[in-house]
Design a protein around this nucleic acid. Sequence first.
DNA 1: CCCCTAATGGGACTCTGGTTCCGTTAGGAT
DNA 2: ATCCTAACGGAACCAGAGTCCCATTAGGGG
Lengths: 206, 206
Amino acid sequence: MVDEPSSPGTVRPGGRTARVRAAVLRAAEDALVEHGFAGLDLGDLAQRAEVGRTTVYRRWGSTTALLADLLSDMAEQSLPRTRSGSLAEDLRANARLVRRTLADPRQGALFRAVLVAANGDPGTAEALRHFYRRRVGEWAPCVTEAVERGELPPDTDPFEVIRAVSAPLYYRMLTTAEPLDEAAADRAAAAAEAAARAGAYRRAAG
Amino acid sequence: MVDEPSSPGTVRPGGRTARVRAAVLRAAEDALVEHGFAGLDLGDLAQRAEVGRTTVYRRWGSTTALLADLLSDMAEQSLPRTRSGSLAEDLRANARLVRRTLADPRQGALFRAVLVAANGDPGTAEALRHFYRRRVGEWAPCVTEAVERGELPPDTDPFEVIRAVSAPLYYRMLTTAEPLDEAAADRAAAAAEAAARAGAYRRAAG
DNA sequence: CCCCTAATGGGACTCTGGTTCCGTTAGGAT
DNA sequence: ATCCTAACGGAACCAGAGTCCCATTAGGGG
């Protein structure tokens, strides 16, 4: 019976292995901010992290795989949503959080890179979808509660409402040069709320 | 006085030069559909187009530059908007057009690729912004007309409304695995309309 | 504290994307 | 039809990303 060769880093995940991983992921973030995804080079990362080039290639193999790792790391530490008791307030808080994330040099660069890498690499795409399911699911309850309070039609799809808040911000970031300011965030939240109240996100028929 | 060396293809744009350009752009589209942007290789394109490898490198130099060229080519032939006289109808027509474009294997692949390439390459980013300004500007009048008919608040920003129609479709394409069906398009149009009626896209204060 | 072996890291090697050189082909002006 | 030269294209060349081999280091179970 032949033993499965088991990928490196799985048998002894602690100690040096953990330090190497942390150093490389950190270096990857730095490099992303500086050069973006296109300029990401595993050899360069090894130098920054003061780690052997061979190690980086062996552990991750490709820039997209490394990004997927980085993203799943980030998915762990998603901060809990705020709770204000008002739908308008909750959606605005969400919109501002998204805006702040995208506008932040470090996080914004990471998000752009992941969106980029998810095209063409199924593994990264799956990691990305997982991340958004989690993020959206975290905020969906504020819509459900609004429905229970009778503020929204009973068959409103909570996920769609939350996505509707983020969508304009991503679209603006990708297709225009205009800055992602707080006004844009508030507008996105207000629009989503108005559309939801009008029943645009009801499950059966719009 | 030293002559500017003028980039190739500018002095004799017709005849063979035009044929080469057409063949390469065509080959690029094919390759995009097959392998996506990540798998785009200028050497491979040269073979497909039955053109010298040197020529491709000399004329475009990089995959991103080639995409920018491809996009500006496409910007020319943007079809005129339909006119129905009803805001709801116009927005839905727009949403369906966008959806059809993104869902089309050929055009969809191209759009994803351009969005990807625009990160990190300023030239491509500029071409992309130009394209969207044009596209959005093409459809903005249907909002202006609705304002004139008194259907929407007078200080509604037409561009924001049109962008609001596209945004959810792009967001869905990028972050989920769910298909871009016609229902999603209609929902996007309905949501934008409802938000606009509620005054979410007024210029001064939401 | 020792031992076994997972994991790292240096360095040689390969393979391929991209450049350079220079001869050939063909636009288009006269 | 002729000529000048813009543009093309084959082939040799170069650099750097990714792989392989093997010696060295250090987890962590006993």
